[in-house]
């Protein structure tokens, strides 16, 4: 590469309006995120219509901010990368149409990016990817194990069959009376409690890397319900610790099994739940004990949650591989990772 490549990334798949400029797929020149969390808190979750309305209000401001911070103009950009899916369709539409308008107005190549590919490539902003690798992507919307033999070649070897891990966290948090979003609160409580309550682990069939968290969620709700009927108190700390222990055990065990079977050189942790201390610690410890030769990469929190730098990073690699989208690029709420 004898010429520097600047890519503008745009991400609006859920409740963050984000834009970023990344140089050569590795260096973050800007990473702007306008969070709508405050707007959705009163509803106890993300309301799609409200998320879409906020995206329209924020989109050009956020892109302008990202370009100003990076000190680039449209003529400096080699490509515009945008999340095309999966996500909330009405929210995705705003980013996709903004990206298409920019690409058209300034004659810049357009690259549609899969949201999960973005989460995985967040790792490239902190460390070099070494193949073959395994990525565990865990967030409010996703729980996936992705195997990569080489750049932009994704193979989903396991995924959730019902709730995403982050979704289960939010529902259990609500049942425990914790504020939205519940994940960080459960993580904090879990550090203070002990996993004394017996909760199930969903291993599914022998050899499967798929996940299921709805049974665990129901077990928590039932336990709380039964205790209430009997007039007993359940310590939220013990429940948080027990719930987290089940989630973390399943995630780490399946990740280690897959890492061994596929003989990977690197394991990446990606997605918003990668901020979870319980998961980070457990995965780190077991990797050290059972797979000492394999590197574990966990990006900093700001790159784990939804952001556009990760979309620009993935988009840069796709751009180098010659991938281009045309102006008929559309938002696809269930876009497959391929």
């Amino acid at each position: 590469m004898n010429e520097d490549v600047y890519v503008l990334g745009i991400e609006t798949s859920c409740d963050e309006t984000a834009a970023a400029v990344v140089k050569n797929g590795r260096a973050i020149l800007s990473n702007v995120v306008a969070s709508q969390m405050e707007s959705h808190r009163r509803f106890g979750g993300v309301v799609p219509e409200i998320a879409s309305r906020h995206h329209v209000e924020q989109i050009t401001l956020v892109i302008e901010e990202a370009m100003q911070q990076a000190k680039v103009s449209f003529s400096d950009l080699q490509a515009i990368a945008v999340t095309a899916g999966p996500g909330l369709v009405g929210a995705l539409l705003v980013g996709v149409n903004a990206a298409k308008a920019l690409a058209f107005a300034h004659g810049i190549p357009l690259v549609g990016v899969h949201h999960i590919a973005g989460h995985i490539y967040a790792n490239q902003l902190v460390s070099e990817m070494k193949f073959p690798l395994l990525a565990l992507v865990v967030s409010g919307g996703h729980t996936e194990l992705v195997y990569m033999e080489e750049h932009v070649k994704f193979k989903v070897i396991g995924e959730t069959r019902d709730d995403a891990a982050g979704e289960a966290y939010d529902k259990v948090a609500r049942a425990l009376g914790l504020p939205y979003p519940g994940g960080p609160h459960i993580d904090r409580l879990a550090q203070e409690g002990e996993p004394t309550i017996d909760l199930p682990r969903a291993w599914l069939e022998e050899g499967s890397y798929d996940f299921s968290f709805s049974g665990l969620k129901s077990a928590v709700l039932n336990t709380l319900h039964r205790a209430k009927q009997r007039g007993e108190e359940i310590d939220p700390k013990q429940m948080a610790a027990s719930f987290q222990a089940s989630v973390v055990e399943v995630l780490t065990t399946k990740t280690l099994q897959a890492a061994k079977q596929y003989r990977v050189r690197q394991v990446l942790l990606a997605g918003g739940v990668a901020a979870n201390r319980g998961l980070r610690t457990a995965l780190g410890e077991r990797m050290r004990q059972e797979l000492p030769g394999v590197e574990l990469v966990i990006p900093p929190l700001s790159l784990c949650t939804d952001n556009a730098a990760m979309i620009a990073a993935a988009g840069t690699m796709l751009y180098w591989q010659g991938r281009r989208s045309d102006l008929a690029l559309n938002a696809d709420p269930s876009l497959p990772l391929a």
Binding site: S52, R53, V56, I59, T60, I63, L93, A98, A101, A105
Partner: peptide, 19 residues
């Protein structure tokens, strides 16, 4: 249509701002 209105407004805003 909420979605329809947003598509046109997003395109219009982005074109206008960037030009």
């Amino acid at each position: 249509s909420y979605t329809g209105v947003r598509i046109g407004v997003t395109i219009a805003k982005t074109l206008a701002w960037s030009l």
